[in-house]
Design a protein around this nucleic acid. Sequence first.
DNA 1: TAGTGGTCTAGACCACATT
DNA 2: ATGTGGTCTAGACCACTAC
Lengths: 252, 252
Amino acid sequence: MESQGTGRQPKYQRIAVELKAAIEDGRYGPGDRLPGENDLMAAYAVARMTARQALGVLQTEGLVEARKGAGVFVREYRPIRRRGVQRLSAGLWGEGRSVWAVDAQGWDLEVQSVTVADEKPPEAIGRVLGLAAGASACVRRRRFALDGRPVMLATSYLDAALVSGTAIAEPDTGPGGIYARLGEIGHGPVRFREEIRSRMPTPQETDRLALSAGTPVVLICRTAFTAEGWAVEVNDMVLDSSAYILEYDFTS
Amino acid sequence: MESQGTGRQPKYQRIAVELKAAIEDGRYGPGDRLPGENDLMAAYAVARMTARQALGVLQTEGLVEARKGAGVFVREYRPIRRRGVQRLSAGLWGEGRSVWAVDAQGWDLEVQSVTVADEKPPEAIGRVLGLAAGASACVRRRRFALDGRPVMLATSYLDAALVSGTAIAEPDTGPGGIYARLGEIGHGPVRFREEIRSRMPTPQETDRLALSAGTPVVLICRTAFTAEGWAVEVNDMVLDSSAYILEYDFTS
DNA sequence: TAGTGGTCTAGACCACATT
DNA sequence: ATGTGGTCTAGACCACTAC
């Protein structure tokens, strides 16, 4: 005897639910191989597309990862803690260390690629930076990886006229990074705003971050303000949501 | 002549890319109906499952929403701005207004349902609250909606022994909400930590938030600390990511 | 080489929304 | 009543992985 109502449920959902229960019970642990399409066809007497659909449910929920030619495997979740407030305190970036070093808490967040160019920024960002219409920005694109696994794409925009000739316009910005250099030219930021959203990745983001199906991205747009209230930098970040926990501390 | 390399691309991806381009160009705007499965089968000379797969790509990217019996429609994005820092400043919850009123910025964030019960909390939360093993917590579950559309599920955990007999254990907590009541019994919170993650929703969350395919949820876990450093409340929130922008402001 | 997941076809029946 | 998307079948060929 089955529990009531299960008859109205599509087959693929019933299969998905049973697989999910097996994962939550620990019958399959992180990294384990699940029954594949052929196994499910035999076990449940369904067609291939139906077995596929069941596995697809777990994939789009991010529980499971399909590896071509190998099988379907349970994913694991071990995120990095990123502290939004403390990491930008003066004690850190005022001296020799880069802002990003603290991200990985002992592990090493490695910069995989840097490009610097003058470009016309998106309209909204140009406006925030107070650029004249059509003026160009210094655009710094970076990709960060942890243990070789890419976890974040970052794009910084700064007023090209302000930073040209400084280390900010070079791939290597030197100790303390962009913010230390801005301080040296009298525009050190003291106030920050981070705006956070989440959505499914574009195919390009999926590619650059090597995301598996069912993994959203988190978007952080950080604006850095000087004491005078000028926005000197806008940093657009795209994070692998399975790689991060963001933390913000504040007082009332 | 096609551009080089397109031949190596699966048909469904090619179709998906063309539809996506049409949306980005504005040929289809928010709320518009896209070509359906039958249209695509005819236009591209493919089988039904292939047309479906193409539309599935846009769905899981959150660009598009399928309505049974009606068609496939372009989704729109109009998020609420939620300020993490200012909304908890003393000026707000110290007086008559509830913390949540500012969320919607003029619109009304309505509480759709409240349940209050004493339960054993998840192990990790009991530990944060400093509860003895097996001790029960006062658990407040709420659902918030904007214009009738559910946008957030919130579950608060407090020490049951601390709040029993107060308005916190009632569905209606009175003006200023939980935090004002905690202040009245000498445990007003002054420091907050919010931890943010994102993932695809569980089927239950999809149901309770009426999420369409391709919409992640954002998880905010907020811990409220007293001046003595006690954690008096843990609030677990599940947000429709398409409904929110989170904002955090801070100084270095 | 055998097995896996990825793509694709050509049908079918259903519940549902709009007309 | 017609057309829509949702589910399902029974085949097929391919590229890739593991052995």
